[in-house]
Structure formats: structure tokens, C-alpha cells
Computed example of a mutant assay.
Amino acid sequence: MTYDAALTSDGLAPSRQGRILLLACGALAREILAVIRANGWEHLDLACLPAILHNTPEKIPGAVREAVDKHRSTYDEIFVVYADCGTGGLLQSTCEQLGVRMIEGPHCYSFFEGNDVFAAHAENEFTAFYLTDFLVRQFDAFVTKPLGLDRHPELRDMYFGNYETLVYQAQTDDPALTSKAEACAKRLGLRFERRFTGYGDLAGFVEEAAQG
């Protein structure tokens, strides 16, 4: 999901200053809007960058910088809802230079489960492949097709031969998504595990942003 301009929680473009912008990865749009709407935070707006940037993480810091520069004059504060996401610390450095705060964590799998909880068992899960609600919905667009598995299923062993378990981190209780995630595990030849994480540390970060 991509937004060309900042949107308010009701889908309208902001018309006045004195607002707070959440600049986020498009893979988090549904979850962020759910938190905003559940709490009635009408002063928070959301602008998303394309989720597909995760396939080229070296482009994320520049894209964030460009978006912050674009929206800075319209907002009192901007919060970046990206984890490190494979940028090797470059995104954190960019945010520090820009004077904006970003959510903590190496990736969304960590902050959805809770950074402390994820870190506690990460060393024992080197063979786990993680999916979120978004990635279950977009499995073909973000996994199957980019890796060429739709054209060359024999590549499965090259990409996933060292994995043992597909861990579905569920943000919502949706039987249809659980069924689809289990089917994804079967396609990859992996054991299936479902963990209900809810929104984890994301909810707290959005709340902190709402408080300014």
C-alpha cells in the first residue's frame, strides 16, 4: 500500500498545521490505522512508502529522507515507523540527522512480538522464517514471484533448505489468514507455527507519537 501524500485516519489530506505525521512502511499501514482508529487519534496522519522497498533496503534511508523533507513544513512532528529493516544502521543515522524519531528494533518481526521477547529467543530460531499478516496476504507478490519460485519451484531448496519452521506472527485473529499461512508453510516444506502477537511494540510507539 502506497500513499502519494499524507492521509488522515479518515483518508483525507490534512488541511491545517499542528498535526503529527507517522511516516511508515506500507506493510504496516493496516495495523497503524487500526491503532489510530481504535484510540480516536484524529491529530495523527499516516504517509506510507512502498513496502517493496524491503527488497532493496539500501534505498530506504534516501526514501525516508526525501519524504521527511517533503512533509516537514506541514507537521509539527514526524515519527518514522520503520525498524532498521536491513539498512545496517543507516536509517537510524538518517533519522538522527533529520531530527526525527524512529521505532526501535531490527525489523517488524521483532517489534510485533516485542523487541525484548524476540531478542530472548532469537538465538534459538536461526532456522525460522517469519510471516506477518501483511506478508501472508501478499505472499506471492513478496516471496513467490521475487524469488522466482512461481517459474522455478526447484529453487525452493536453495532459498529455504536451511529453514525448518515457518512462524506466522498473527496481528489479528483471522482463521482465513491462518489457513493461508499454513498453506504457505506447506508450499515451502516447513513446519508451521502460529504466534498471536497483536501489534506488539508498534502500538506503544504510535501511542507515544500521539502524545507528541
Rank of each mutant, 00 (worst) to 15 (best):
Thr2Lys: 06
Tyr3His: 10
Asp4Cys: 03
Ala5Val: 13
Ala6Lys: 02
Thr8Val: 03
Thr8Trp: 04
Ser9Gly: 08
Asp10Met: 07
Gly11Trp: 11
Leu12Ile: 05
Pro14Ser: 10
Arg19Tyr: 02
Arg19Phe: 02
Leu21Gln: 01
Leu22Asp: 02
Leu22Gln: 04
Ala24Asn: 00
Cys25Tyr: 05
Ala27Trp: 02
Ala27His: 06
Leu28Val: 07
Ala29Met: 14
Arg30Asp: 13
Glu31Ala: 13
Ile36Gln: 13
Arg37His: 06
Ala38Cys: 05
His43Ser: 15
Asp45Met: 08
Ala47Trp: 07
Leu49Trp: 00
Leu49Thr: 00
Leu49Lys: 00
Pro50His: 01
Thr56Met: 12
Pro61Phe: 13
Gly62Asp: 15
Val68Gln: 11
Asp69Thr: 08
Lys70Pro: 03
His71Arg: 04
Arg72Lys: 14
Arg72Asp: 11
Ser73Cys: 01
Ser73Lys: 07
Thr74Leu: 15
Asp76Met: 00
Asp76Ser: 02
Ile78Phe: 11
Ile78Gln: 06
Ile78His: 06
Ile78Val: 13
Val81Asp: 01
Tyr82Trp: 08
Tyr82Asp: 05
Ala83Lys: 04
Thr87Lys: 03
Thr87Asn: 02
Gly89Glu: 02
Leu90Ile: 02
Ser93Leu: 11
Glu96Leu: 12
Gln97Lys: 10
Leu98Trp: 04
Gly99Met: 05
Val100Ala: 05
Arg101Gly: 02
Ile103Val: 09
Ile103Pro: 00
Glu104His: 01
Gly105Val: 06
Pro106Asp: 06
Pro106Glu: 03
His107Lys: 01
Tyr109Glu: 02
Phe112Tyr: 15
Glu113Leu: 15
Gly114Ile: 00
Asp116Trp: 02
Asp116Gln: 13
Phe118Ser: 00
Phe118Tyr: 00
Ala120Trp: 11
His121Leu: 08
Ala122Pro: 04
Ala122Cys: 12
Glu123Arg: 14
Glu123Ala: 15
Phe126Leu: 15
Thr127Val: 08
Thr127Met: 08
Ala128Arg: 07
Phe129Gly: 12
Tyr130Cys: 13
Leu131Ser: 12
Phe134Trp: 09
Leu135Arg: 06
Gln138Asp: 09
Ala141Met: 09
Ala141Cys: 05
Phe142Leu: 15
Phe142Val: 15
Phe142Cys: 12
Leu147Arg: 08
Leu147Thr: 03
Gly148Asn: 11
Asp150Leu: 13
Arg151Pro: 04
Pro153Lys: 06
Leu155Gly: 07
Leu155His: 09
Arg156Ala: 12
Asp157Met: 13
Met158Trp: 09
Tyr159Pro: 11
Asn162Tyr: 07
Asn162Trp: 07
Asn162Ile: 04
Tyr163His: 10
Glu164Asn: 13
Thr165Ile: 09
Tyr168Pro: 02
Gln169Ile: 09
Ala170Ile: 10
Asp173Asn: 12
Leu177Lys: 05
Glu182Ala: 14
Ala185Ile: 08
Ala185Arg: 05
Arg187Leu: 14
Leu188Ser: 08
Leu188Lys: 05
Arg195Val: 14
Arg195Ala: 10
Phe196Glu: 10
Gly198Asn: 11
Gly200Lys: 03
Asp201Gly: 14
Asp201Tyr: 11
Ala203Leu: 07
Gly204Arg: 08
Phe205Arg: 06
Phe205Gln: 05
Phe205Lys: 04
Glu207Pro: 03
Glu207Trp: 05
Gly212Leu: 00
